[in-house]
Amino acid sequence: MVKKILSVAICAIVLLFVYAPILLLVVYSFDSSKIINIHEFSFSFELYKQLFRDQKIMQILFNTVWLAFAAAGLSTILGTAGAIGIFYSRKRVAKPLNAVSQIPVINAEIVTAISLALLFSMVALYRTYFSLIVGHMVLCTPFVVLSVLPKLKQMDSNTYEAALDLGASPAQALFKVVIPQIFSGILAGFMLSVTLSLDDYIITAFTKPKTFDTISTYVYNAVKNGTNSSTPALRALSALIFVVMIVILLVINLRARKPANKGA
């Protein structure tokens, strides 16, 4: 009994630590004062009105989302093809590819970021949309490969041969037989890429065009320049993102935890 109470208490304290900042912002997104004051609270939707009227923040929100989906889409295509290629290649090819593919995963993000800055400044593409997309792809693609490879290993390899025997072209066999069987891995890789891209600050900061901002770079710079307290609408933005993300994550996880999905 004592043990049980202790367990619940430990969990409760840690959960409080994890969710207190989130809760604070959500609650005070309904209070329009510039600086949060715990003794004063007057309910209003003022910050949300300001948020949706703020052209700049809306543009940044849009930037962040399109960048995430573009980078995730490209990474998913490149990574899925890469995983299939690696899976069917001889060890001599597959091993070094796998090893190099691990570099961005293990590496510190700042090192990846400056390495790309060095490369792109040499070819005069530093701080362009190209360097930005490539930067995010370097971040995401290895994780797509890591999501897809296990699915290929689980797949029955005879089905591809069977499709060829039945007259399918290799491309048809790939799209109609292999891809459907590894689709859960591809989807997982895509979703992971979207979250990685949305979450990123450091690579974005080193590859983005000067006038382009994502939520991460905008908020960091607002704190740096001390303008975050003069833009309380950022509180509403954070609160909105917290709530939307928590709801999406809970729905996805509670709805379907199929056994096939679990061991990914």
Binding site: L78, Y88, V93, V100, S101, I103, T112, L118, V138
Partner: peptide, 29 residues
């Protein structure tokens, strides 16, 4: 002739260009 193995070529090039060369550049700098 299309073969499944060839699908790793784009990713291989991508890694060479945007992972290996940049890391060598760090060493060089």
């Amino acid at each position: 002739h299309f073969s499944r193995k060839q699908l790793c070529i784009p990713y291989g090039l991508f890694l060479a260009l945007f992972v290996v060369i940049p890391m060598l550049l760090i060493l060089f700098y």
